[in-house]
Amino acid sequence: MPDKIALNKFSVHYGPDPLLQEIDLEIQSNQILGVIGPSGSGKTTFLRALNRMNELQPGFTASGRIMLDGEDIYGLDYDAVSLRKKVGMVFAMPVPLPMSIHENIIYGPKLSAGRGWKYDEAVVESSLKAAFLWDEVRDRLKTSALRLSGGQQQRLCLARTLALEPEVILLDEPCSGLDPVSTAKIEEALTILKERYTVILVTNNTKQAARVADRTAFFLMGKLVEEGTTQQMFTAPKDKRTSDYITGRFG
């Protein structure tokens, strides 16, 4: 099977400082890739590179290539807006837009539908169900999304991303502020979602990567130290730094 995403000597600089250095990595579809590493290791920069969110802040420059289905997403004529519809993102802090639950879900599809403003209303139910949120909000879709609890907001953000029917889903520490029950719900959703999507999960919680990821990548100081199947990474890592990090000797 061809790689869904392939990075080729991909680097990101902020001003003169390197944030990511010459990353080479292939990512297969229908898998969860866990990305671990201490803070400041470039995990988030890596994730935000995949849907070109870094470039929204002035000062970021990227070099090298990222191929999505064989197309260079940093190519001159590649449209970042259409890329972000294919590569959805869930942030560390749940950030529902200041509108109702229903409007949050249809926000993306409505924009994609363009002038006709036609979209499938069924997407609201299906994406909320896929994010394990439907039962909790089915009676109050018109209330403000800001009234939901933190865990519910994060699942809403996941549902909102799913409503776009992306091909790749990026998650940036989606459970960092959540209780164990909400975390379990999101993890459960992810393991089902990988059947249809390519999932990339940045997490500070190595156990979470061990639980849900098929493959795991370890970043340190802007470099990709090691990548392999999760089982191999957690039982027989090749690099000493990886085993040190996983066993909690630093970071």
């Binding site: 519809k85 942030f91 950030v95 837009l97 776009l164």
Partner: peptide
């Protein structure tokens, strides 16, 4: 975060 959330959903 509002802006980023919206842009990440493919909004211009």
């Amino acid at each position: 975060s509002y802006r980023e959330g919206s842009l990440a959903l493919g909004a211009t």
